[in-house]
């Protein structure tokens, strides 16, 4: 978060962001979790909601991390972490996994972002310069999932903006982000532009606008993004 003391004191911790994203998922959705804060989202989805987690290395129905000593070398998620499987899980190879992703069978991809544009362009695989980052499954997920939820800090550590008119970093996909969750705001990307739905407790629309390049649309005062947990 920026060096602005007001924004910093109001900013959500990763666990709070993950909890808000989890609440936004429709019951029964098939969801792919990217690396970073997205992996925390699964911790806040109650089992009774029927949300299924899919990983691009070939599993639907991934469960929580196994107890220490119970890890199985052949059961991992796309972040290389050991997993368990839930009843009803299935496993498959990459060709099938990406047929699901590219064929529109995944409801929501939740991905970390470096920059998001006013129209929902996503930049999240590399920064300018030689020898950095990797594409992985990001371009397939961004282009193929029915919806993309992006998660990022609202600004860079030096205060530089990340919600922009146009992304300056190499793109992952154009016009794909539908919902953006940051440490200070929940913003819906609509055909008319970004709509500020919620702001962190203590912040106004103007506070969020001040660190966002595109003009934020509003529909009355924003709802409140609450802080409950420290990570």
């Amino acid at each position: 978060m920026t060096s602005d003391p007001k924004l910093e004191s109001c900013a959500l911790k990763p666990a709070d962001i993950a909890r808000r994203v989890a609440a936004e998922l429709p019951d029964g959705a098939v969801v792919n979790l990217g690396i970073g804060i997205p992996t925390l989202v699964g911790n806040y989805v109650e089992a009774g909601r029927g949300v299924m987690f899919m990983a691009e290395n070939g599993i639907i129905g991934a469960g929580p991390r196994p107890e220490p000593g119970e890890e199985d070398k052949d059961y991992i998620n796309a972040s290389r972490e050991p997993i368990t499987t839930l009843p009803g899980a299935s496993v498959f190879g990459h060709a099938d996994a990406f047929a699901m992703i590219r064929g529109g069978h995944i409801d929501i991809a939740i991905m970390g972002a470096l920059q998001v544009s006013a129209r929902g362009d996503l930049a999240n695989w590399t920064v300018p310069g030689l020898g950095k980052g990797g594409i992985g499954g990001a371009m397939d997920l961004a282009a193929g999932a029915r919806e993309v939820y992006a998660i990022m800090a609202h600004t860079m550590k030096d205060g530089g903006l990340k919600l922009l008119e146009e992304c300056s970093y190499p793109l992952t996909a154009k016009r794909v982000v539908t919902k953006l969750f940051t440490d200070i705001a929940f913003i819906e990307i609509t055909p008319d532009g970004p709509v500020l739905r919620e702001a962190a407790e203590g912040l106004t629309t103007e506070d969020v606008q001040a660190v966002s390049e595109p003009r934020l649309l509003t529909n009355g005062p924003p709802g409140v993004l609450s802080r409950e947990e420290t990570p």
Binding site: E56, A95, A97, F98, A143, G144, K174
Partner: peptide
């Protein structure tokens, strides 16, 4: 892209001459 890589390999094995995909546009 990982899915493009998997599908290009699949195409090689399945006798597909080439294919179009939205992944990677732009």
């Amino acid at each position: 892209p990982q899915g493009t890589m998997a599908e290009r390999i699949r195409a090689a094995g399945a006798g597909i001459s080439a294919f179009y995909t939205p992944t990677g546009v732009g």
